[in-house]
Nucleic acid binder design. Sequence first.
RNA 1: GGUCCUGUGGCCGAGUGGCUAGGCAGAGCUCUGCAAAAGCUCGUACAGCGGUUCGAAUCCGCUCGGGACCUCCA
Length: 471
Amino acid sequence: MCGPTVSGESHLGHARPYITFDVIYRYLMHLGYKVRYVRNITDAGHFEEEGREAEDKISKKAILEKLEPMELVQKYTNLFHWAMEQFNTISPTIEPTATGHIVEQIGMIQKIIEAGYGYEVNGSVYFDVKKYAASHDYGKLSGRVIDDLLETTRELEGQEEKRDRADFALWKNAAPEHIMRWQSPWGEGFPGWHIECSAMATKYLGAQFDIHGGGMDLLFPHHESEIAQSTICNHTAPVRYWIHNNMITINGRKMGKSYNNVIKLTELFSGDHPLLEKGVHPMTVRFFILQTHYRSTLDFSNDALVAAEKGLKRLWDAFDNLKKIQGESYPADAANDAALTEKVQKLLAELPEYMNDDFGTARVLANLFELVPVINGAKDKNFPVGSLPQALWSEMAATFQTWLVDILGFRSVTEADHAKLQGVMQLLIDIRKEAKGRKDFALSDKIRNQLTALGISLKDEKGGEMSWTIE
RNA sequence: GGUCCUGUGGCCGAGUGGCUAGGCAGAGCUCUGCAAAAGCUCGUACAGCGGUUCGAAUCCGCUCGGGACCUCCA
């Protein structure tokens, strides 16, 4: 899939494709597929903005920050990896960089020229879209009509080198002030935006591969152009299935630099942003994203994030409760509730169906939520554990582990798993039980209240047991 | 202007032509030394107007609203 451009910090919008594809990656492996997950790093500043001078974002930013371009690239790459770790995403199997594949890109451009679909002008090379469109369907992915593209009357500067407005750059001649530049058959320059993906995908995945992902905003022209380039070079359509995630919006508008509504991931986690009421945990973001189908837009708001935070906690607490039930002994005189058993079995059986239907993570989560009252009800002794067959309890526990942890990729939000803390908490619980036993409510309340002040809530349960969670 | 997507109860959101999505918030009840959880119950929503159909939030048309792409963009 298309990875990040490391010319700046990632923002909330960037989180969506990586979390979405992390789940897809996890699910494919869960199904037993051997997956090669390639996600490139765009670290060459080859950004040509139509209508303006060809601009190199990384060079520009490097001058601004008084850094070597590669220092800048390293800084933001590290930051990106850190954020991905916060989200608990699994690293791709190959993470190639654009600058590390200049040779492959040049080779591909040469092949395109030899095939007659590329032409050189003043040290730059362009792809001949018109010629390509004569024999291929340029626009089949994005639904674009080639004639519209060719006939657009809009006049833009910096276009005079191109034979046609719809043509795109494969290689750009570097102006003297350009820092990032490479030697090529056409002089010193830098690669065009679309060619890196084609070159790296071809190298690591072959002429044709199964799935290519990215944000919907890359559909045109990026992916469309990728198809054209690769098709000419490799004589086959490069991709069997395209998966595009939709955008995250703020007040109904796409999050993006040009809209000035960006929330960087560091700001999101810390809460240090005017639009944020408080910091958001990475797992909350993950849940927030997976609660919506990846092809729908997802509207950001503080309320929605709070709802996601509480929802995830409810689900995770139920998972903990489920483990506790597992630890209890199953009654010998169990009388199964047929209706409840059937309901649970149905909810479990539907999970793979939903996931197989275009990765319906939202529906998977909804089913898991429907299991929550069953789990909590049994834990609170509202009905006997024996209402469900023992094997079904095991299956539920395994299902939560598989789906919540392995496939959807959630992990504990708190430090509650630390063994030492658990020991300390057990000690406090024992003391409080003793105090309650002799009706010393002043002491028992003190323990509970002070823990609450520390952000740990202690709950009395039926039968005199106590449980605790970190808020 | 062109291409396409979309409009669901207070909020976020899923969705198949006929069956309660789910989460958050809110109300009531139960449990409880108190508290917090938890459990149970509740709103009966699908922009508007037509049409197709035995039946439509789900299909078609129109109107209105929102958005994306057509320039870098996840």
